[in-house]
Simulated scan of single mutants.
Amino acid sequence: MSGAGAQPPGPGNAYHGALGDAFARHSGTSPYNAYIDRPAVLELAGDVTGAHVLDVGCGAGYYAAELLARGARVTGVDGSAALLRHAAERVGGRAELRLHDLETPLHFAADASFDGAVCALVHAHVEARDRLLAEIRRVLRPGGWLVLSASHPTADWRHFGGSYFDGSWVDLPLPGSSEAIRYRRLTLETLMTEWLAAGFTVERLTEPRPLPALREIDAALHERLCAEPSFLAVRLRNPAGPG
C-alpha cells in the first residue's frame, strides 16, 4: 500500500483492464459500496421517475441499474472500457453508455440536457475537478441536481495517517486482489470550496451509515461502520437563475 507521495494514475484516471474487472467484482458486494454508498446516493437522488440522469463515472453500472429500476432514463459515462463492458451486461440496452475521459469536457452533451446527475466515488480520481463540475453544471437544466459522494476525509486520515491536510495521491488495495485504486485525499474544506466555486448550492450533506441489513451479515463490521465515517454524500442544486 502506498500513502502520501504516490503519483497520479495514467491517462483518464479510470480503472483499466484487470483493475476494472477487479473493481467490478468488488463493488458489487463490498459492504462499503452495497450497504453504505449506493443506498445513500440513491436516497439523495430521490424520485427520479421520468428524469434524464447522467451517471458520471458509471463504473460497472450498479447505480445506473438502480436508477433505471426507479424509472429514470440514464446516460452513463466512464473512461474504462473494461468497466463499461460490465455496465453493458448489467443494464443491457436500457441505458446509453459512453466511453469518455472525465478529464475532458462533456462534448457529447448539450447545455441543460439532463435533469440530474450522480457522481459516486469518482470526484477524487479526477485532476481537472473544477472543469468536471463546471461541465456537469452546464449540462444540467436550471434547477437540476447533482448527487456526489466521496471518501470521508477523516476516514482517509485514519487509514493513511500523516497530516489531515495532505492532498497527495494514495493507493488503496482492493481486498482479495493484487490491484489497488488510486485517488487524491481531499479535505472537507477543499470539497466544499470546489462545489460552491462551481456555482452549485448545497441542499443536503450526509455522513451515511450502513443499512441495518449489514448487521445480519457481519454484526461486528456493522457496529464499527456505524461509529466511524466512511463517506460523504451531498445533494447539490444548479441554481435556476444566472450564476
Rank of each mutant, 00 (worst) to 15 (best):
R131N: 07
R129H: 07
V147H: 08
P153E: 13
R204V: 15
E179C: 07
H152S: 12
L148S: 15
A198M: 03
L148G: 11
Y183Q: 00
F160E: 05
E216P: 10
Y164N: 10
D115I: 11
W157E: 13
I136S: 03
L191V: 06
G116L: 03
E194I: 03
S177W: 02
A124E: 08
S113A: 14
E194C: 03
M192L: 14
A128Q: 08
A197N: 03
R184C: 12
H152K: 09
F114G: 11
G161M: 10
S168V: 01
G176R: 00
P210L: 02
L188R: 02
G161K: 04
G176K: 00
G161Q: 07
R182S: 01
R215K: 14
A180F: 03
R137F: 15
V122S: 01
I217C: 14
E203T: 11
G143I: 08
S163D: 11
G162M: 06
I136L: 05
G162A: 05
G162Y: 02
P208I: 15
V126Q: 01
H159S: 11
E189Q: 06
L172E: 05
H159Q: 10
I136Q: 01
E207C: 12
L205C: 15
R209H: 12
C119I: 09
R204I: 15
E194K: 04
S177T: 01
C119T: 07
E127C: 09
I181Q: 00
L121D: 06
D111A: 14
G161P: 05
G162C: 08
F160A: 08
E179D: 06
L186C: 08
S163W: 03
D130Q: 05
R185T: 07
A197I: 00
H159M: 12
A120G: 13
L211D: 04
A213F: 04
S113P: 10
L148R: 04
E135V: 12
F114I: 13
L133C: 07
E135C: 11
I217W: 00
V202Q: 03
F160L: 04
